[in-house]
């Protein structure tokens, strides 16, 4: 069981625009074991959604390999891809635009069942839709309602039911709980966990919410401007974040605990342009520790087993305090 269900090698996705080439996903590699969850974390524009879509070939990758059960998804024919996609589903970010407003809840959930001939006959299909609705906690009375009548939480449940309809092995969850209230969010997270345990599902969990990803993932990859800057098992990442960006990200989470007044690292500015990025660390312009050494793109290095970080200065920064002191002295 310890085999990789999905292996991504040197995945790239560039978009050509008038102003230059957008490096949305720039040479990333990772793998996920069967039944495990990889959390893909980062802020808007870091390429996490594009990564998720490229894996399903919903957007054609510019380069790289995507091995699903050992087969390269990028080389599949149209028919082969349609088959492969039965095993790979997507739960969308925005429950407001991912559901057809002119279809009822039952029609939306039934659509993939009908399109792939999974059940035949109206009774069979209705039965399947009903069981899916109860799996995701949608009341039977919502069977004939339209998406606009539902709140965000229920809409997202429709999206999950639709993804489960195919009985997939692998689901890309793209911010599945960002639009939900905390109590509902907890229900959905528990639901996804239970489904994972029962059906042996493998997840890529894309989110910007670090406390959620920590709870949910076995391993976490932090992305910044198309690159993976740090990747480690969840506990390790939260205990020993090495990359300055990860550190800032972790410190920025508001914690609902009064005793946990932590030192907040505020990073300056906003995410820089992904158009033709120069050969330097992508975080260079915002990093509090940037120096000359950072003016070349860092490679992912293993700092300890399973923990990878892409920072030219990680060894120096081991002893962060001294570096901060150095900088303060310099500033004087």
């Amino acid at each position: 069981m310890d085999e990789n269900l999905l292996e991504v090698k040197n995945l790239k996705k560039f978009f050509k625009t008038k102003r230059g080439t957008v490096h949305a996903v720039d040479d990333i590699s990772f793998s996920i074991k069967k039944g495990k969850t990889l959390g893909l974390v980062g802020e808007s524009g870091c390429g996490k959604t594009t990564t998720g879509r490229a894996i399903l070939r919903l957007t054609e990758p510019t380069g790289g390999q995507i091995l699903f059960n050992g087969r390269d998804i990028c080389r599949l024919s149209k028919g082969g891809l349609k088959k492969a996609r039965r095993d790979m589903q997507l739960i969308f970010q925005d429950p407001y635009s991912s559901l057809d407003p002119r279809k009822t809840v039952s029609q939306i959930i039934a659509e993939p069942i009908i399109a792939n001939h999974l059940s035949r006959g109206k009774d069979k299909i209705d039965e399947r839709v009903n069981s899916l609705m109860s799996t995701v906690g949608l009341a039977p009375r919502l069977f004939n309602t339209y998406p606009h009548e539902l709140d965000g939480g229920r809409r997202q449940r429709v999206g999950i039911a639709r993804a489960l309809a195919m009985e997939p092995q692998f689901i890309v969850c793209d911010e599945p709980v960002s639009a939900l209230d905390v109590s509902i969010q907890a229900q959905i997270l528990n639901l996804l966990k239970t489904l994972q345990a029962e059906m042996g599902l493998t997840f890529i969990f894309i989110t910007h919410d670090l406390s959620v990803v920590n709870h949910f993932s076995d391993e976490i990859a932090v992305m910044y401007l198309g690159k993976i800057v740090e990747m480690a098992p969840s506990e390790e990442l939260f205990a020993n974040p090495r990359h300055p960006y990860t550190q800032a990200l972790l410190s920025a989470i508001p914690v609902p605990d009064l005793s946990a007044k932590r030192e907040r690292i505020i990073i300056k500015g906003e995410i820089t342009s992904p158009i033709d990025p120069p050969d330097e660390c992508r975080f260079y312009k915002r990093c509090n520790y940037a120096c000359e050494a950072c003016r070349k793109t860092p490679e992912l290095e293993e700092v300890c087993p399973g923990h990878l970080v892409a920072c030219n200065r990680w060894e120096e920064l081991e002893n962060t305090d001294t570096v901060v002191q150095d900088q303060e002295e310099e500033a004087k």
Partner: peptide, 17 residues
Amino acid sequence: LFNSIPNLNDRKAMLTP
């Protein structure tokens, strides 16, 4: 509400929605 929030310090804990 508090029980529904994933705890950063105890990631194994099941959420109690």
